[in-house]
Nucleic acid binder design. Structure first.
Lengths: 194, 194
DNA sequence: GAGGGCGTACCGTCTGGTCGGTTTGCGCGA
DNA sequence: TCGCGCAAACCGACCAGACGGTACGCCCTC
């Protein structure tokens, strides 16, 4: 109970500071002060500052991947599966907005082995989504006159950009935004009129 | 000639290093070594490391804004103007891929006054584009059932994401990608079928 | 000979990380 | 119930070095 408490508080403080100040400009000292622990305690649970950053990513990647797997496993027509995936990824990205901010801003600061790991897991997600699009193309519901890689990029761009403009205090709820972005995406890749 | 040479070489070296290593992890020493000048020379032309980062942004923002103004000034139906803007911004973003990488990754590391300036100029671009969409909505060619802010975000997301996936060595040329992304965007926001 | 472009040496500060030691929690034999 | 022992949790003073930035003076050009 106490052990998890320390590690969790450090992780939360690190996420907060990384999101507001950036990874490189946040010192380990700041993190431990914000978390109300000492440096010794922190280095007892984490190997390095780098490890803190990876912990943030690890949690988010694992969650998104498990969501994707669930939705795909549920099955259905390609278009409906893509719709469900799209709505879900937008909503969870809004739930994890600070994580997203840190992710895209500071990913390149991970050390080699961890960067490889993160890249690998992103590619997994990426490939699984591309396979869905391919199924839709085979079924004839998604257009095939644009390279699939461009369609995939077009999809991830919205998710990526969320942390740059969306605010929970803004006029739109996450459910609305998820519906709207999903609708925009599907309309652009469908062969038939909506 | 010589003066510009020094400043230019420093700017180029800084851009290159910021794009590959990140702003915070690049030291002034590295920059001046890569540029083949000394720290004294560099600090003669730039006030601070922060100034170097701003110089990168300044150039890109000025260029994109002037392009936008030109295209809007040329006039035409809203849809065609938006199409031209979209194609142009994708193409110039590809021309300035390293700048884009640095921009979105390290913008938050600018000091207060310069961050304000950059934010202001981005908003200018943003507002001008939103006005175009509004015109299209008034003309009835762009859908109005989705908040304009969401449409604008949907547009900028593609531009933003380019530096994360596009490679000049990849299979698609910048012209093709510009056409494809523009097509996807327009199709999603049009009221009528293509 | 004056002044601006530039080189050199240096400064104070802060960094991520370490390490020897102390405290805490807990199973267990009596 | 107590006390023992021991591992895990935790502390915080302490590195070595790198950082951004500056002071000052040389030299070349006009």
């Amino acid at each position: 109970m106490k052990t998890t408490n320390v590690a969790d508080r450090v992780t939360a403080a690190a996420l907060d500071l990384f999101a507001t100040q950036g990874y490189a400009t946040t010192s380990v000292q700041q993190i431990v002060e914000a978390a109300g622990v000492t440096k010794g305690a922190m280095y007892h649970y984490f190997q390095s500052k780098d490890d803190l950053l990876f912990a943030v990513y690890d949690r988010m990647l694992a969650l998104q991947k498990s969501h994707l797997d669930e939705i795909v496993a549920a099955g259905g027509p390609a278009e409906e599966v893509v719709r469900a995936v799209c709505v879900d990824v937008v909503e969870t990205s809004i739930d994890f907005l600070p994580e997203g901010t840190v992710f895209f801003r500071s990913m390149h600061m991970l050390t080699e082995p961890r960067l490889k790991e993160v890249t690998r897991r992103r590619r997994e997600y990426h490939d699984e989504f591309a396979a869905l699009l391919r199924r839709g193309q085979d079924e004839g519901v998604f257009r095939a006159d644009v390279p699939r890689s461009v369609l995939v990029a077009h999809f991830f761009s919205d998710v990526h950009y969320l942390s740059h403009w969306y605010s929970p205090q803004g006029p739109e709820t996450k459910t609305e935004v998820a519906q709207q972005l999903t609708d925009l995406f599907l309309r652009s890749i469908r062969t038939t009129a909506p």
